[in-house]
Simulated assay, not measured.
Amino acid sequence: MTTTTTHHGRSDRTGAAAGGLVTFAAVLLFVAGILDLFRGIMAIADDDVFVATPNYIFKFDLTSWGWIQLVLGVIAMVVSAGLFSRALWARVVGVGIAALLIIASFLSIPYYPVWSLTLIALYGFVIWALCVVRREP
């Protein structure tokens, strides 16, 4: 199998892999953003799916926490749309929003532990996928 080289010295196969990683990050960020949106709605509605933790250092009102999750989830979905269009700003903001969402998920571990750890892993993959791809000329 032969690979062609572009005028910038990168092979077509490398470019396709890079585009695939950005698409992977966009899909993960969109899905995780929707999940955060739903988690925010559940917290705002005072749903009983959240564990009551009386002695946690980082104590938040469940409704306030729900609004934070909801807003971060919406931002993540908007940024994922930018990632689908291969916008450079979206890659930079995507890493930042994924990092913020990792912190938010960490702070909510006592309230919903398995879900929080799952989202931390998803956002970690988003950061990885956005950071390993070189900037396109």
Rank of each mutant, 00 (worst) to 15 (best):
M1I: 08
H7Q: 12
T14G: 01
G19Y: 00
G19V: 00
G19I: 00
G19E: 00
G20E: 00
V22W: 00
T23C: 03
F24C: 07
F24L: 10
A25W: 01
A26H: 02
V27I: 13
A32R: 01
L35G: 07
L35T: 02
L37C: 11
R39Q: 12
G40M: 00
M42S: 14
A43Y: 07
A43D: 04
A43G: 07
D48H: 15
D48A: 15
F50S: 12
A52L: 13
A52I: 13
A52W: 09
N55R: 10
Y56F: 14
Y56A: 15
Y56N: 14
I57N: 04
F58C: 05
G66L: 04
W67C: 07
I68D: 13
I68M: 15
Q69I: 06
L72Q: 11
L72N: 09
V74H: 02
I75V: 14
V79Q: 01
V79I: 12
S80C: 00
A81V: 15
L83S: 03
L83M: 03
S85H: 05
A87R: 10
A87H: 06
L88N: 15
A90S: 11
A90R: 05
V93W: 12
V95Q: 04
G96K: 03
L100Q: 09
I103M: 12
L107C: 07
I109W: 03
P110V: 07
Y111M: 15
V114A: 15
V114S: 14
V114G: 14
V114T: 14
S116Q: 11
S116V: 10
L119C: 13
I120C: 05
A121C: 05
A121E: 02
A121P: 02
V126M: 08
V132P: 00
R134V: 00
R135G: 12
R135N: 10
E136H: 09
